[in-house]
Amino acid sequence: MIRAALFSVMTLFCLAPVAQAQNGTAAVLARTAVEQFSQAIEGMKAADGSQDRVRALTETITAYENGLEAMREGLREASLRETAIAMAFNSESARVSELLAVLMNLPSGSPLSLLHPSGPVGTARAGMLVSEVTPAFQAQAEALRETLEEVQMLRSLQQDAARQLAEGLRVAQDARTELSQAISDRTDLPQRFAADGARVQRLISNAETLKGFAEGLTDIDEAEGVAPMAALSDQIGSLPLPVHGTLLRAYNEADAAGIRRPGWLVATRPLSLVTTPWPATIRYFGPFLDYGNVMILEPGNDILMVLAGMEDVYGEIGSVIPAGTPIGVMGGAALDPEAFLVAATLGTGDERTQTLYIEIRQGGDPVDPATWFAARGEETQ
């Protein structure tokens, strides 16, 4: 009977999977988020004494946005992992109950009751089985301890996220407020040409399409003798996206109304910062037709980059701005921390409620942005 019971115990250990801690993806992402939020906080402190205040504030906002992405992924990973642990525990509960029943059926009483009926050889074999079961018990206990520690870490991650998010959000809001003024105060950017405001306004009034407006800017160049820019051919295909976002519609892809536009539509979070992906001349910024606020950049000779849909736009027409310079902010309401945490944990909803339109024109004709940017945007969450 002892041998049969011990054999049953060993069978359970052989069949039952041991819960092991995963590769710690959630913890890594959580640490990344904390580091990036910390960078945002330190960047905000440094911005006060920075000679290049615009750059310092831009880095602050960028660090916050990167931290937001890492936190969202970390919370989702933590939720998935905790669910997997709970499912594994529930699936093993029946095996644990069976194991306890086997142990309860082991004979008890005097030492003689542990003797095998077949004699010394059987007793020795039973002892060997017991010695083999003991390490399995220890391994199972260790696995359970590691799993409980992981659950504790995951819950701690979720509890700390609210505090980290609130602090990062406060810093980002302050940085956005100060950024607009810092850009207005900037006087160190070179001017490629002096804008003829009246001429641009006439062009806007007469242009019926974005293409016509872009062609009109080229005509102004020729009339005013604006010097051409350097070629950009060696950078094609490696430019970063100007905003954190997800590709919503590709080049010439029809929308719900069947309308096709020769550019990308990128979904972004509210108040996301938009930056120039390459040094460029600001050719125009302001409202145009139904595009909302439009920023037209000239990153290279005979190349125009059109960015449309921002709530606010920054800069001065004719100035040459370096890569990474903020040129606008998306619209929408400020992040709701509680809603963000719930959606991130459950993996439901999508905070990307704003859209940025990106169009590239070369020689006056639109080209697919896919040939220009290094990435097609983040994966849909």
Rank of each mutant, 00 (worst) to 15 (best):
L304A: 13
T276C: 11
A267N: 11
L265P: 00
L304D: 14
P287Q: 05
N293L: 05
G286Q: 01
P299N: 10
L304Q: 15
F285G: 00
T275K: 14
L289Y: 04
R261C: 01
G309C: 09
T276N: 07
V243I: 15
D290Q: 10
V313G: 07
L271G: 02
V274E: 02
V274Q: 05
L241E: 01
P299A: 07
L241N: 03
E253Y: 06
F288T: 00
W264V: 04
I303P: 00
R283P: 01
A308S: 14
P270S: 13
R269E: 14
L289C: 00
G245Y: 07
R260L: 10
G245E: 07
F288H: 02
G309V: 10
A257Y: 11
A267C: 08
D302Q: 14
D255H: 08
Y284I: 07
A308C: 09
F285Y: 08
L265Y: 10
N301D: 14
Y291G: 05
L241W: 09
T276A: 13
P277V: 01
P277I: 01
Y291S: 00
V266S: 06
N293F: 03
V274H: 03
R261P: 00
A308F: 10
E253M: 12
F288V: 01
I282S: 01
G263I: 08
T276L: 05
F288M: 08
T276G: 04
G300P: 06
I282H: 00
R260I: 12
G263Y: 09
G300A: 14
A308D: 06
S272W: 02
E311K: 13
R249E: 08
G263P: 07
D312S: 14
E298R: 13
A308E: 07
A257N: 14
I259H: 13
E298I: 07
V294C: 10
P242A: 07
G245D: 04
M295F: 08
G258T: 09
P279D: 03
